[in-house]
């Protein structure tokens, strides 16, 4: 989480206009979802990995680790999709047969599993590309341009900021408890964890009040107006992205 966020602020595509990155990621995502054949999804996975690691400069190992998170879930579900249990003989079913029941795979099942797996990974790759290259603040700026209601955006702004405040508070409280043997036994661990949660609730409530006070002191009136960073359009990125998406689009039409 922290590292992902850090790369979002420090990568070679950070200076590219966030609107371009959001558009590129979303259009590609749509193509992946709409494309009937898994070939396109596979292509997107490779291209997005390339864009994130080679072009944006995210370390390959970190990217791989990130991809492995959804992959382990998806692999489990894909396995379940691929497996078939049947009483009747089916065309192309191969597997083990016990008491007339067959547990095995059919070509269609395999194909379907591969499609689901690749599509999901392709979609994930698109979103990873966006979150690895674009800070949340910039994505919010794009959403504001797209006329998303200000209330929702303010909520996201505060939530995002407070994730870090909350994590820091959890960390401090937890350390303070550990240093006083709060987690020495199973029993005390349960008690400490309960107290951690309770104190977190109270502290969060106090923080929200303090924040409101501080915002009011600076003239807050129902909307968090801020100055957005102006990014120049990057024609190179725009052209490359558009070319890639067009290529995928025609590939989708042809196959």
């Amino acid at each position: 989480m922290f590292r992902l966020d850090q790369y979002a602020y420090n990568n070679r595509l950070q200076k590219v206009h966030p609107g371009e990155k959001v558009a590129f990621a979303l259009v590609t995502l749509l193509i992946v979802l709409a494309a009937p054949r898994p070939l396109i999804a596979a292509l997107v996975i490779v291209m997005m990995a390339g864009a994130a690691t080679v072009i944006a400069g995210i370390p390959f190992r970190f990217y791989l680790k990130l991809m492995l998170v959804p992959f382990s879930f998806l692999a489990a579900s894909a396995t379940m999709i691929a497996l078939t249990i049947s009483h009747q003989p089916q065309a192309g079913l191969r597997g083990v047969t016990i008491w007339g029941w067959t547990l095995g795979v059919t070509p269609e099942g395999l194909y379907l599993a591969a499609r689901v797996l690749l599509k999901s990974l392709g979609a994930t790759a698109c979103l990873y590309f966006l979150s690895l290259t674009t800070p949340v603040v910039d994505i919010l700026a794009v959403l504001r341009r797209a006329r998303v209601p200000a209330l929702l955006l303010d909520l996201i702004t505060l939530t995002y900021r407070f994730i870090f405040v909350l994590l820091a508070t959890v960390n401090d409280t937890y350390t303070a408890q550990v240093s006083r043997l709060g987690y020495a036994s199973l029993c005390s661990s349960y008690r400490s964890l309960g107290q951690l949660a309770a104190s977190l609730f109270i502290k969060t409530y106090r923080r929200s009040q303090e924040l409101f006070t501080a915002l009011t002191a600076r003239g807050y009136q129902e909307e968090l107006v801020v100055l957005e960073t102006v990014y120049p359009f990057s024609w190179t990125f725009l052209c490359l992205g558009a070319l890639f998406d067009l290529f995928l689009f025609f590939l989708m039409l042809l196959t």
Partner: peptide
Amino acid sequence: DPDSMLFSASVRQEISFGPLN
């Protein structure tokens, strides 16, 4: 406590809030 003042993840946006108001 500065943490109770900062609401934005961006330093520039944070500073721009008051003057915009």
